[in-house]
Nucleic acid binder design. Structure first.
Lengths: 248, 248
DNA sequence: ATCAGTTAATTGGTAATACCAATTAACTAT
DNA sequence: ATAGTTAATTGGTATTACCAATTAACTGAT
């Protein structure tokens, strides 16, 4: 590939990538057909196919023979295909992610308390309010997304770009796999109330610029999430067992 | 894509991916031409192109017009293209990575001390010996790779798969960009000697199954690496300034 | 009007062929 | 041995044709 003349296929991929990132085609949308895209973009169909291949390979699109091409994600998936597959098939790896979050978010909260600008702080506040506003939504994934946005706003306040990327990838991993009991965090009052208080404490520590308090708040929060998920898993397993007992 | 009949292009990409992972084509190797691959694999050239596109998009291969296709990496790059580009163009983001390693490797060392099997411990020992054996090699990247292998062996001992993946991606990120003064860590005796002692202390803490000692060893080591790189950067900047002064 | 079955159209996947621009290899002259 | 020229090779793009799978449209029966 010459540096003086960009590949048409690459240009098409970048153009489509920008449309995806901008939300022009929301998740699940069916894209125009290859022949149509080729005509609209004034390139040949093989060039469109090669561009689509790039985006399919990054986990952003999915093609179905005779059925069209669909949006899977507006951003490249940050983890390799085998890990994503493994994660989808083995939900217990959620606890691996929680272990990592425990280490990273304590650290992020520390740096956010030290480094956040006024804009960062405002964004954290807005995200916290958004979490409260979206509580009780029929679609629990809305709450999960608001929760992720809140945490990512804190990571943004740490001003460590690589950390932000890693955390985004971890949240993508959680959201792109089937959310195994994750919704229960938001729908059980015995979990949501303390959860919400912990979010508030974390936010207040960061806004007050108290790094050690922020770290502790983050670590306690993650420990609580881990314990709650384990307890929810146990409850669900018990329910399943008793349902099986009834059906005999 | 039907689940009953895999795409030819995907099969070719997987086949090539296995050849890459097995080391059949080492880093930098030029692959056979597209026409040749198409003949060898009994598929059409467009199918080969689509397969190559998948691997190019994952950062594993690079194509040059008229010049062939080359191996960039034997594994998919775990980070998205924009971050990789940004990292290559702005070496100061190394310090973002070091901040993250500080958090993650302290954690990994803790769990490795708790969870390592005898096999894990043996692998850690072998990697440590390998680091000593390769010291002074004319190619400092050999030492960087041995260093990475040692740290990854410890992460493997933590038995957290997602953490292993994240750490691999971070090391790939460091090694796939121009190694800005990284070689100086191994070539300056005032740095290498304490570095080697710290590696030994970290290994011994993990092997002895002492989690708190292991965490401290890891964190102190990463702090030393960070300080050393900053000091080396300052030395190099001073040298550059005095060279500029002489050339006037 | 609704539903089921059939047919036609559309879609992504594959292949063959041709040509172009860039690079590499081979050849020739000094 | 080196420099310049030519030929061959390479990746990139385009056109055309065909196939398998899916979707849409149409028709007939209830």
């Amino acid at each position: 590939m010459s540096t003086t003349k960009p590949r048409k296929a690459t240009q098409v991929a970048e153009h489509l990538g920008r449309l995806l990132a901008s939300g022009h085609w929301p998740l699940g949308t069916r894209l125009p057909a290859e022949r149509q895209l080729a005509e609209q973009l004034a390139v040949s169909r093989p060039s469109v196919r090669e561009a689509l291949q790039q985006l399919i390979s990054k986990g952003m699109l999915e093609s179905r023979v005779g059925g069209g091409t669909y949006v899977l994600s507006s951003k490249p998936i940050g983890f390799s295909d085998p890990l994503l597959t493994l994660f989808r098939e083995n939900p217990e790896y959620r606890f691996d992610v929680l272990e990592i979050r425990h280490a990273l978010e304590g650290n992020a909260a520390w740096y956010a308390a030290l480094r956040s600008t006024d804009e960062d702080k405002e964004r954290i506040r807005v995200c916290f309010e958004q979490m409260l506003a979206v509580h009780g939504d029929p679609d629990p994934m809305q709450e999960a997304r608001a929760d992720a946005s809140f945490h990512l706003a804190i990571v943004e306040g740490s001003h460590n770009l690589v950390l932000l990327h890693v955390m985004r990838s971890l949240f993508d991993l959680l959201q792109n796999s089937i959310s195994h009991n994750l919704d229960k965090l938001y729908t059980q009052p015995r979990v949501f109330e303390p959860l919400s208080q912990q979010h508030r404490e974390l936010m207040e520590a960061v806004l007050a610029g108290e790094p050690e308090r922020a770290r502790q708040a983050a670590e306690q929060h993650l420990a609580f999430v881990e314990d709650s998920l384990k307890s929810i898993d146990a409850d669900e397993a018990r329910k399943l067992r008793s349902l099986r007992h009834l059906s005999r």
